[in-house]
Amino acid sequence: MRFHTRKWVKPEDLNANETLFGGRLLGWIDEEAALYSIIQLENRKVVTKYMSEINFMSSAKQGDIVEIGIEVVHFGKSSITLKAEARNKMNRVTILTIDQIIMVNLGDDGKPKPHGKTKIEYVKDRLGEAS
């Protein structure tokens, strides 16, 4: 799994137990999944359709650095299925895992649109093709 994003846990990210609020972490993961999908599918109109069971394994506290990893599980006709992991950057302890996040590619009409993708593409490779 490649870890793309790092977030610093600040006071406004904490719950009543003074640990990272789960909803904040899920928001960060949803945003990362959307950004990853937009880049892979080359379309800004992508929405979250589904998240499977969310497995909280540990917590984070103020000052911790959380890194978020995303990996492609499957390319559908108009969707991309990802899995995610959030972990503490300093000690590599897993905070949370999600086995499936389904993101759907949309057309201008707001309906699912086939994307034609079958494998992960890296921006550097796309740029190489254009040359």
Rank of each mutant, 00 (worst) to 15 (best):
A84Q: 04
S131I: 14
D125K: 04
R87H: 07
G107V: 06
H4D: 09
T19E: 12
E67C: 00
I80V: 15
S37D: 13
D108Y: 01
D13Y: 02
F75P: 08
D109Y: 02
K7W: 06
D64C: 01
K124R: 04
Y122V: 01
Q62T: 14
K83D: 10
G107F: 05
K111P: 00
K61C: 03
A34L: 15
N105E: 11
I80L: 14
N17K: 04
L25G: 00
T19A: 06
Q40H: 12
A33K: 03
E12V: 08
A16P: 05
G23I: 01
P112G: 11
N15Q: 03
Y36D: 06
G76V: 08
I95K: 01
D125A: 03
G69Y: 02
M57P: 00
L106Q: 12
T5N: 03
L127M: 11
V93I: 15
L25I: 02
W8M: 13
K45P: 12
I120C: 05
A34F: 12
N55V: 07
E129M: 11
D30E: 09
S52C: 10
R6T: 14
V123F: 14
G27C: 00
K119A: 15
G107R: 09
Y122G: 00
N55R: 10
H115Y: 08
D99M: 03
V46H: 01
E129Q: 10
R6S: 09
A84R: 05
S78H: 06
I95E: 00
G128Q: 09
E12K: 09
I54V: 15
D13C: 08
R44L: 11
N55Y: 04
E85W: 00
G107P: 03
D64N: 08
A60F: 13
D30A: 11
T94A: 14
G107T: 07
L26E: 05
G76T: 13
P112C: 10
A130G: 06
K77T: 15
K10R: 15
N17Y: 13
I29L: 14
E12M: 08
F3H: 08
